[in-house]
Design a protein around this nucleic acid. Sequence first.
RNA 1: UCCACCGUAGCUCAAUUGGCAGAGCAGCCGGCUGUUAACCGGCUGGUUCCUGGUUCGAGUCCAGGCGGUGGAGCCA
Length: 518
Amino acid sequence: MPFGSSGQASLPPVAQHDEHLRQSAWRSICVNLRPIFVVTTKHFPSPRVFVVYYGVTNRHASLNLNHHGETMPPIIPISDAKDYVGQVVTVRGWIKRKTGKGKLLFLRVRDGSGIFQAVAFRPTLGDELFARAKKLTTESSVILTGEIREDSRAPGVPGGYEMDVRDLEIVQIAAPYPIAPKEHGVEFLLDHRHLWLRSDRQWAIQRVRATVIRAIRDWLDDHGFLNVDTPILTPAAGEGTTTLFEIDYHGTPAYLAQTGQLYNEANIFAFGKVYCFGPTFRAEKSKTRRHLQEFWMVEPEIAFCHLDELLEIEEQFVSYIVQRTLRERAEELALLGRDTSRLEQVVPPFPRLRYDDAVSMIHEAAAAGVTVPPKDEPLPPLPWGEDFGAPHETYIASQFEKPVFVTHYPTAAKAFYMEPDPERPEVCLSADLLAPEGYGEITGGSERMSDPEKLLAAIRREGLPEDAFDWYLDLRQYGSVPHSGFGLGVERTVAWITGIKNVREAIAFPRVLGRIRP
RNA sequence: UCCACCGUAGCUCAAUUGGCAGAGCAGCCGGCUGUUAACCGGCUGGUUCCUGGUUCGAGUCCAGGCGGUGGAGCCA
């Protein structure tokens, strides 16, 4: 029962102690979006308010009743504090930081929804409660009741509102907290990731991530894509066998999926436009700011789709994700210190650049002695046919205001299933989307090979196990069509939008090379 | 796998040519009515990553190992 009372089926009467409590009750009723019916009676047995309700959402204040069925101040999330100025409310959370000045204590409190300051003043709180408040340590859990007031000096998210504490209940006094409000090393923070998540910065990043994921699903669901998820335990590689995590499948070797794409290709023949979304696994020995062993990827796949249509889908999709996040997570991005001016420009169309032209740009830049951040090392030359290194990606991306598509990579440098350009088979109908500001490749996609003979030849050329791909080849026997798809890495996208330096902060519990705890 | 750098208090870091192991923060005690990583006074806190070597003497020099960070390759 969401009101936090005993859960009994009968409706609790609300005592009408005073005008203030009555207003609090009304207030909590009014903020609930779900239908609520209120009856007042003047006679039975004394003046009472009866509340009829159902389905109260957790997002809003709930009516707070004590054991006697009497109204208590409503329990609110900190994010709603601005709606309760002048009213007495209860907030449940954790102490981020405590500062003070004699008879005055400032408690920075977070509850997951937001951060604000609670002010404990000895003359109004009383000596006993004030002494209790002074005992609070960092990360102690508390239930605070007091009046919300507006004050421009009050810090927080959203700032400008604070609580004048009238009552407090200590749930637990926290042990000395290892993470101090100062700089820490990476190893220490990753060892304490379970606690590090409580920091302002990590809180903001995970809230952005949730919005990015919501935007991904909403856009695809609203554009005719069906979510059909693909297996994580798989019998064969998606793209080569060196980077797979092998597991024991009841005596048979199996692998954690590094892509859902091959299954996506089966699904389009049943559902037309599909996407899968989940964790993928790469056992690469990569220790860079852009790599995780386990990361989340959304992979749309579309039947009857050529490369040019795919690029239009991608630019609409990525723009929507960025613009919606800017709109809904402005406070979090501000907390992270993100300069959003570059992100505001992320709207279709994105520039398109052929691999050939990218190589020419790199040659000219290398000849001119251009250097690339972060170390300002000279741009290395790039022989035609090789894939870009990180400095090449950074340089190309830096030449454009928006994300840029690089298309028509050399066929030999790309995965076996990519369709060669019919006019020029040494390049394929592929496209990578490079994010600005050095965040690298955020999507990779292509038109897929639809001809069964050519696909079989490609599998043999790569030396892949033919029998593992029998069903994949089979797809091309029954109504094969041109089709295309791409994958977008969630952590790289979140890192780019939030402006963080390393993808490991974009996921709650990152799996990086050499680390499996916590 | 390769390259570079790093390892000293719970954390971030000092320690001169090889010569007494130090500070700030956190924690504890006391003070302060508007703090924003407050401030003031006091206290507590050490296997200097490990093993061996050189030396009268090693945090410091040498050898080997372990751990970490960044990058390369590869990738989203």
